[in-house]
Design a protein around this nucleic acid. Structure first.
Lengths: 247, 247
DNA sequence: TCTATTTGTTAGATTCATCTACCAATGGAG
DNA sequence: CTCCATTGGTAGATGAATCTAACAAATAGA
């Protein structure tokens, strides 16, 4: 981020201003300090100097006390940021099924940091889901599962009826509490809800991660596991919520 | 981001330090200024005061010139950031099929800004792809398409053989250049490669976006379209690369 | 034990983004 | 035409994160 700024002095904050200007010109034909300040939640005393910097960078045309105009370069840049915003928001809201508010907020936070490559791959995913009949069905199914999933993992539902009916021997699902000390597994599901789930995720316990049970207390309550090279301890109910396949 | 900082003064930079410390303790049993500076690409003169701040915040224990120790609170926080990093990197690398370097970089940039809700939904997606047989197949297929896709959209490939064989009337695919002025469409695919594709994405032309053809120049070359309330112009070859369904 | 090297600290400067508080310009309303 | 309200601009301050450069402490060789 530092080196990026040296080559390209347009900071995230300036990009935000640019995007705001872009949207205001779109929606009300002009952009002025007051509205920008309001939209961005800053004071007008902060906007003026920012406009000066944007002008110096050739991204806007700004003569004091007059309306702000985007240069072609500025418009391009603004549109780019806005496109990333839209893409992320769509992904969060319509694919991951997040609440609109959170989708918007997360998109705002990330719009400046999405590489071209990531953007490209997101779009490929969208294309897949849009164009491919299977993709569409799957999205439906995923969203269905995701919505219900607060309790029931998708596996139990209609997914069960799919092809690849029998699950091979070593893919047997079990919970961490079924593992003996020394045994390892690969996480496939986190069944807990609310605080338990949150805590597990925050500790890095989610699908694809490999864990090893190191030690189990006599009562079976704290269970020490190793993941990503670090040791953590789980309560019994947390361990029981984590489904794994043996490795 | 501002308001968040007031309630919780742990900035992104401090969180990065915390994560670095966490990983160094994991990998070499101790963390010291020099290594942290190197890992983060800053000078040691910047690290010392940061350690002081982290100590004041109760996230590390730091006595000058001695090794740095994470408090339970600090360890929790570090693990949380690292978990987000892992999750994002996994998503970018193994699901979106990005190059390892870019996946890593993007994950770094976003790890501080991923809401709990987003994390939860990502994990649901992983669970779906891990546990559900259909999910697995689909991921395979998507990755296959994604890899080849630089030229060939997935629709033409094995996806074609899926259920839902015939595409209904109004879902006929056509390119933007097939639309008449006044007609509208919903983007489903962006077929162009390289610079053309990049330009289209940067302008916000990607699946799910609705566009309307406003005007076509006599020669058919610049085509003006409206999307997201803004007018942009496309060259003929760009327009031809964008597949839409009529709306 | 004494020096040379490595490592860490401190002070002071810079840049960015913000604030507050006050000042200046503009434009209606009377 | 004047006055006042709205709007924008400026100066000065703050806080974060960084740098450089000089200094101090610890460590390791000789």
């Amino acid at each position: 981020m530092n080196s990026a700024r040296k080559e390209n002095p347009v900071t995230d904050a300036l990009e935000d201003y640019l995007e705001t200007i872009y949207l205001q010109i779109r929606d009300q034909k002009f952009a002025r300090i007051k509205d920008i300040a309001k939209a961005r939640g800053v004071k007008s005393g902060s906007v003026s100097p920012a406009m000066k910097r944007l002008d110096e960078l050739g991204l806007i045309k700004y003569v004091k006390r007059e309306y702000i105009v985007l240069t072609p370069e500025g418009e391009k840049r603004a549109r780019r940021v806005f496109a990333r915003h839209q893409l992320l928001e769509h992904f969060f809201k319509d694919i991951l099924n997040m609440s609109p508010g959170a989708a918007q907020k997360d998109a705002c936070a990330m719009e400046h940091n999405l590489s071209d490559e990531a953007m490209d791959r997101f779009v490929r995913l969208f294309e897949f889901l849009e164009v491919c009949p299977e993709g569409r069905d799957l999205l439906e199914k995923f969203r269905g599962c995701s919505r219900v999933h607060h309790d029931i993992p998708c596996m139990k539902e209609d997914c069960k009826s799919a092809h690849r009916p029998e699950i091979s021997e070593e893919e047997q699902q079990m919970s961490i509490s079924d593992l003996q000390p020394g045994q390892s597994g690969r996480v496939t599901q986190v069944n807990g809800q609310g605080a338990i789930r949150q805590r597990l995720l925050d500790m890095g316990v989610f699908p694809r991660v490999e864990i090893e049970v190191e030690r189990v207390a006599p009562a079976g309550d704290p269970i020490w596991i190793k993941l990503q090279g670090y040791q953590i301890s789980l309560r019994q109910n947390e361990a029981a919520a984590v489904m794994v396949t043996r490795v």
